[in-house]
Design a binder for these strands. Structure first.
Length: 103
DNA sequence: TATTTGACGATTT
DNA sequence: CAAATCGCCAAAT
């Protein structure tokens, strides 16, 4: 079980209609500062079908604009389809962020 | 063991 | 939350 595998596990556990930040995931894994490693883990993305990368966002609530898995438009559609309110590719973490939901 | 790199985070400017 | 900088962590070589 590598660090990345844990990341995948957590990402998959993200409830539909919610988004998690890299930092939050890192915190859940036990390393609040390992957000970078988390992002990189998703970068590997071994199973795009199982891993909802679109639910993983940075601290602002926006998906990485640089490495968009297939286009920000697709991501926006996916999130909206799950009930997540998306404004200009930005999600309201105060409403849809995991915060203390997991743990 | 050391160096490099990278879907980040926080602070500063 | 624009752009630059530093810091942190984990993996690959």
């Amino acid at each position: 079980m590598s660090f990345y595998d844990k990341v995948y596990s957590v990402v998959v556990k993200i409830p539909k209609g919610r988004v998690a930040t890299y930092g939050q995931i890192a915190a859940i894994l036990g390393s609040p500062r390992a957000a970078r490693a988390v992002g990189y883990a998703l970068h590997f993305n071994p199973s795009p079908k199982v891993i909802p990368c679109h639910r993983v966002v940075n601290r602002f609530g926006s998906l990485a604009p640089k490495f968009a898995f297939g286009g920000l438009d697709a991501q926006k559609s996916l999130l909206e389809d799950e009930g997540v309110e998306v404004n200009d590719y930005i999600v309201d973490l105060n409403k849809f962020g995991l915060r203390e939901f997991l743990n």
